[in-house]
Design a protein around this nucleic acid. Sequence first.
DNA 1: CGTCGCATTGATATCGCTCAAATCCGGTGG
DNA 2: CCACCGGATTTGAGCGATATCAATGCGACG
Lengths: 200, 200
Amino acid sequence: MSAASPPLPKALAALAQQQSFAAGDRVFRAGAAARHVHFLVQGQVRLSRFGRQGEAVVIHAALAGEYFAEASLHSERYHCDAEVLQPALVASIPSSALRELLQRDAEFAMDWVAILSRQLRETRARVERLSLKGAAERVRHLLLTEGKGPAHRFTLRGSVKDLAAELGLTHETLYRTLAAMEQQGVIERRATTIALRGGR
Amino acid sequence: MSAASPPLPKALAALAQQQSFAAGDRVFRAGAAARHVHFLVQGQVRLSRFGRQGEAVVIHAALAGEYFAEASLHSERYHCDAEVLQPALVASIPSSALRELLQRDAEFAMDWVAILSRQLRETRARVERLSLKGAAERVRHLLLTEGKGPAHRFTLRGSVKDLAAELGLTHETLYRTLAAMEQQGVIERRATTIALRGGR
DNA sequence: CGTCGCATTGATATCGCTCAAATCCGGTGG
DNA sequence: CCACCGGATTTGAGCGATATCAATGCGACG
């Protein structure tokens, strides 16, 4: 996926404006005019929306080397907040320039289609995960679909609390579930990774 | 979105092979080699995967005029089953031909990017919906994001039972929730539509 | 050293799931 | 035309899983 955080393609780098953000900043807010597509050069950004009670709903967590708000290319406004979790360097590409590049450069267009397709598949996997009933099932699904290698080892990005939000669980429930699964020998936890263990 | 189910673009029609399916058929199954992208000319198709206990998880419900398995363009195999709900006419476009067309036709590439972007936004909306806690909140979110017009009127496709699956709820819970919301005057139900009513 | 946020565990409440049953409706065949 | 059937719809009762509220430890950071 992102072995060593792929760089911004040169064709785009020329069009982009880079900007630094501190943790807690917003790259953009929901409702703002969507005039740029963004590429996260470094750091961590979380896209979320807020329910009526102010509960944050995490739409997507972007890692270094990923685009975010790509779907806003064909949208008038941003539909979520982009909150900076880790000090970030963001390259912002004007939508109009990107659109033009898509028209002009067939190869780039192919790459862009591939990026969107991947995002779509990942998001669908997440829908599938959230549709599962039990907390343990969701954890298992996460490991099976996002874990690397034969043991399906999954590396946490951020805190367990963040993971809980991504899984649609409270952090308490996730802690308990992880503890129970480890107790039962279903998973193995190390510093910042979780892996499946043979059985069941 | 799909006022009267948009047709298959001519450029693609030439490349596609059309085939009819009866309700209950599978257009493809999970694990099969993904050599085609599909366009639903008519009918209804549901993309789903199955958990260990055989619980169907609905990934996507395709309507007439929509592509499905678009993300498989860059994937070796299908990741879900495509089950025909209503007798369907499906146009299957070889992945290789589609890829070639993307290279050759910049305008089509733009359209394709737009289609993927839309799907991505819709799927993210669904993630957001599934992350909400209460059944009523999910219904409200559905109406707010997918309902048309000022009253956010939403037209059911298929049964209430199907909707329950899409919302990640059991049909019993959804029936009860809808009844309660109507009782409270939050929503208004008609034949096959649900709409929000002003108040709280 | 004090504070803040994450991690962890306990107790309780609540919501949605499960099992169950009755009704309704469209379609089918006699 | 009517009896029958299967699936959708609807409502009931009880249980269990997860949310919620609460308390404590712990490490980072100023």
